[in-house]
Design a protein around this nucleic acid. Structure first.
Length: 294
DNA sequence: AACCAGGACACAA
DNA sequence: TTGTGTCATGGT
């Protein structure tokens, strides 16, 4: 499918598109030159950094041509949030200041809960490049083909829970996800038959929402917090993976490594109401510094 | 060519 | 409670 392109502009100050799309919170964005191609829900999108915001191209299936910014796009990119207000809540200490300085313009996206849950179910002890590959394979095989502009690469929606629930475990394993296949299959079934209402999570208290996610096989506190932070809008969710743990140890516990319990207590006390945002800055910061100069 | 990756879980001590 | 093996795969 191919057709015309519709463009729109999203004004945003302090928005680093590259850092935001490539910092390990979403897995479907591909850089082509100075543009980023990806999929948001059921739509193909191409984004480009502009001085005062973001230029967006969408495949336009001959719809009415209003020039308004689509609500789903602004919601996903979170261009309306005031970054300064968030950064102002970060603890005023040297490490956070360094991270904030180095990651200027990094934003949290607001992703679809099912795609987010499924993606992070596939993430355990995988490198980000591998997660991206698995997700891409999964979409190409089981996702709906999407309308794209002439000349653009084919694109597919992230597979629905209902579609993946119909897969066999062997079919999922064939997408190179290994032992994660039964976890994804079970989550897909739970989400498809209504036993798990992902859309309702954002309206629950944080602890209850987390409980629902933890009830799934293969979902521990790290993956649960990723979904709560990246998809459900809980700003205090704080996923601790190997990188964040590394950063926390190095920056705040240089002597001896803290117990998990002590670490949790520190996180709750130290990072404030936007702890999840701070977490993403630490994650990006430690990966930047460790990979370029080990 | 080892080592490790945006983990979770069962089980031992 | 804390430690260790297991799961599957491939990047660096």
């Amino acid at each position: 499918m191919s057709g015309a392109v519709r463009q729109t502009f999203l004004p945003a100050r302090d928005y680093d598109l590259a850092a935001t799309l490539d910092c390990g919170q979403a897995f479907r964005w591909e850089r082509r030159g100075d543009r980023w191609e990806g999929v948001i829900g059921p739509r193909w999108v191409r984004l480009r950094q502009a001085p005062e915001g973001i230029l967006a191209e969408m495949a336009d299936a001959a719809g009415p041509r209003d020039d308004q910014v689509p609500a789903w796009l602004e919601h996903y990119l979170q261009t309306a949030v005031n970054l300064d207000e968030i950064l102002a809540t970060f603890p005023a200490e040297e490490r956070m200041r360094a991270a904030a300085g180095r990651c200027r313009g990094l934003r949290l996206l607001r992703q679809d809960p099912w795609e987010c849950l499924a993606s992070f179910l596939l993430s355990s002890t995988k490198q980000i490049v591998q997660i991206r590959r698995i997700v891409s394979t999964l979409a190409a095989r089981y996702g709906e083909p999407l309308a794209v502009p002439i000349g653009a690469a084919p694109a597919f929606a992230f597979p629905t829970a209902a579609r993946l629930a119909q897969c066999s475990e062997a079919e999922l394993r064939a997408c190179q996800m290994g032992f994660r296949a039964p976890h994804l299959l079970q989550a897909a079934r739970a989400a498809a038959d209504g036993e798990l209402d992902l859309a309702a999570l954002e309206r629950l208290p944080l602890d209850q929402a987390r409980e629902r996610l933890l009830a799934l096989r293969g979902v521990g506190c790290k993956i649960a917090d990723c979904v709560l932070l990246f998809a459900c809008g809980f700003p205090e969710a704080f996923p601790v993976d190997v990188w964040v743990r590394r950063a926390l140890r190095r920056f705040y516990f240089p002597r001896r490594q803290p117990t998990d319990r002590r670490l949790r207590q520190f996180i709750a006390d130290h990072f404030g109401p936007q702890a999840g945002y701070a977490q993403q800055y630490l994650f990006h910061y430690i990966r930047l510094t460790d990979r370029t100069s080990p």
